[in-house]
Computed example of a mutant assay.
Amino acid sequence: MKSMIKQMVKQRLKKITANELIQYSKEYEVPLTKTQADAIVKYLKSTDLNPLDEKDRMKALKKLAQITDPKTAQQVNKIFNAIVKEHGLEHLL
């Protein structure tokens, strides 16, 4: 079950669009420009990092900080952790 959920998360990240990402940024009040969203989507589609793996997630957050800024990357990490807890998936981290 754990590997199935990981695969679903990875697939979802590969298919996210810049517009969806901007919608999420508005929903969670994380400032994000269209240019930044495009760069993030391009990165997500080109990488095979697993966001449920601590080391991979830190690599992704460092890249996100380069694309946006460190504060935005920290906010995204908090949101990711909140969503994981909200869905009772802490055991996957």
Rank of each mutant, 00 (worst) to 15 (best):
I79T: 05
K55I: 09
N81V: 11
Q74L: 14
D53L: 08
K62C: 13
Q75Y: 06
I83T: 07
Q74R: 11
K59P: 03
A65F: 10
D56C: 06
I67C: 05
T72V: 01
Q74F: 06
A65G: 15
K62F: 11
K59I: 12
D56R: 12
L61Q: 10
M58A: 12
K62A: 14
A73E: 03
K71L: 12
A73L: 08
I79M: 05
N81H: 14
A73S: 09
K71G: 00
F80E: 01
Q74V: 05
T68H: 05
K85Q: 06
I67M: 01
D53S: 12
K59F: 04
I83H: 03
K59W: 01
L64K: 07
R57I: 00
K78M: 02
T68L: 07
P70N: 13
F80D: 00
I79V: 13
A73G: 07
K55L: 13
I67K: 03
N77S: 15
T68R: 04
L64I: 06
Q75F: 02
A60I: 05
T72H: 08
E54C: 11
L52P: 02
L52A: 07
I83E: 01
D56S: 15
L61Y: 08
N81L: 15
K71T: 13
I83F: 07
V84S: 01
K71S: 12
A60W: 09
N77W: 02
V84R: 10
A73W: 06
V84N: 02
I83V: 14
T68E: 05
I83P: 01
P70V: 14
F80K: 08
I67L: 04
N81M: 15
M58L: 15
K78Q: 10
F80W: 14
Q75V: 04
V84W: 01
I67A: 02
A60S: 09
Q66D: 13
D56A: 14
A60Q: 07
K62I: 14
A82Y: 08
K78Y: 04
T68C: 15
R57W: 07
Q66S: 10
Q66K: 12
F80C: 04
V76W: 08
N77F: 02
K62G: 11
T68W: 01
K59M: 09
T68Y: 01
E54Q: 15
L61I: 10
K59Q: 13
K59G: 00
A82T: 11
I83C: 08
Q74A: 13
T72Y: 03
I79K: 11
D69A: 09
K62T: 13
L61M: 15
N81I: 15
K55V: 13
